[in-house]
Simulated assay, not measured.
Amino acid sequence: MEHSTLFTTTSLGPYTLKSRIVLPPLTRSRSTQPGNIANDLMATYYGQRSSAGFMVTEGSQIEPRGQGYAWTPGIHSAEQVEGWRKVTARVHAQGGIIFAQLWHVGRVSHTTLQPGGAAPVAPSAILAPGVSVFIETSPGVGALAQPSMPRALEREEITELVAMYAQAAENAMAAGFDGVELHAANGYLINQFISAHSNQRDDEYGGSLSKRLRFLREVTQAVADKVGKDRVGVRFAPLFQSTDEARVYLGLVEDDPHGTYIEAIKVLEEVGIAYLSLAEADWDNAPELPETFRVAVRATFSGQIIYAGKYTATRGERVIEQGWGDLIAFGRPFIANPDLPQRIANGWSLNAADPSTMYGGTAVGYTDYPRYGA
């Protein structure tokens, strides 16, 4: 077997994983409309990839205001919970373990995606720069658009949002998921509270770093209290270099990313969650995370650590062997290769992903990628 390090078993909360290969959250915008409901096509897609050691769904908005892209699934209505049951049943029938990613985009949205055409909500009324959202322009047809100007959340609304995250986590467990991941990366709502660039509040949720981390702390604790801390993960995207690609693909770059994210990781360690997922820059010639940061993360967090971001099997093995991380996520390769673990184990060639079918559409470019030799 090639890359045998990736095929050793490990634990994640109460679960034993058959390998260290992860299917990370990948937005595909194939939910049934109206209602943003997970469907049979999505169940087929996840079922095809259930040979992963661990799986996390695409981001699923926790409430209607949490949507920033057309046709993404939600996890706040009874119909959505029923839809996701199809996915979890298919994955579990194949022996897979799958968590739901809980998502709220905050200011990265558009009035056409918001209930009643209202402004998106955010920690502060600051426009999201250098990013695009995806809106439906006619049935089944969409286009990129600039985010709309958000409004600042009222104090009582923040408390309501914490409860919405907890309810979404409960919904996920009712849908048959094995746990949940909080999306705190990519410049979305939790990330917006953490960052001084997007959070200019003067109450207990803004100002000092400790105050900016309060929303993360409250949401993580509320979700852990609801489903059990050993069934919770959190995803960050700690960027150490400001570029156009960083702003477009991964969100906010802090003035002191090392200090900001080590303090954020301390919050997760205090709650005692099962894992931390770190999304690295994934474009060509993107800078790697500093080794000093990787070492500090390992020293700070005692749970499992997942790394993602244009990883090859060889690069992933090195991260595990150095002791920096425990699991490696493969995004685009898993889109195009439903049998990715088998291909890695046998040294087989990989299908190339078709960028034109990434978001929205039909089974084409979604469930029709062939297995090796097919």
Rank of each mutant, 00 (worst) to 15 (best):
residue 199 N to Q: 06
residue 34 P to V: 13
residue 239 L to E: 03
residue 207 G to K: 07
residue 321 E to F: 05
residue 190 I to E: 00
residue 235 R to I: 03
residue 184 A to V: 00
residue 188 Y to V: 01
residue 182 L to E: 04
residue 310 K to G: 13
residue 153 L to S: 00
residue 113 L to G: 01
residue 248 V to G: 10
residue 57 T to Y: 12
residue 311 Y to D: 15
residue 64 P to L: 06
residue 355 P to C: 10
residue 38 A to F: 10
residue 116 G to F: 06
residue 159 T to I: 04
residue 83 G to D: 06
residue 21 I to G: 08
residue 182 L to Y: 06
residue 188 Y to H: 04
residue 265 I to M: 01
residue 134 F to G: 12
residue 154 E to H: 13
residue 90 R to K: 15
residue 211 K to L: 03
residue 104 H to A: 01
residue 355 P to E: 10
residue 15 Y to H: 15
residue 103 W to G: 02
residue 189 L to Y: 03
residue 181 E to I: 00
residue 26 L to G: 09
residue 118 A to P: 11
residue 21 I to L: 12
residue 301 F to G: 04
residue 185 A to N: 11
residue 147 P to L: 08
residue 222 A to Q: 11
residue 34 P to A: 12
residue 343 R to K: 12
residue 282 D to Y: 12
residue 5 T to C: 11
residue 286 A to V: 09
residue 294 R to S: 05
residue 90 R to C: 11
residue 143 A to S: 15
residue 210 S to P: 07
residue 22 V to P: 05
residue 320 I to F: 12
residue 69 Y to G: 09
residue 280 E to Q: 14
residue 134 F to M: 14
residue 160 E to G: 06
residue 80 Q to F: 08
residue 216 L to D: 09
residue 277 S to Q: 10
residue 293 F to R: 02
residue 189 L to C: 00
residue 220 T to S: 01
residue 326 D to L: 09
residue 265 I to V: 05
residue 24 P to H: 09
residue 90 R to E: 15
residue 348 W to K: 10
residue 290 P to C: 03
residue 128 A to Q: 11
residue 157 E to D: 08
residue 55 M to E: 10
residue 109 S to G: 01
residue 177 F to I: 14
residue 187 G to P: 04
residue 248 V to Q: 14
residue 6 L to T: 09
residue 235 R to T: 02
residue 314 T to I: 15
residue 92 H to M: 07
residue 365 G to R: 10
residue 85 R to T: 14
residue 277 S to F: 06
residue 278 L to Q: 06
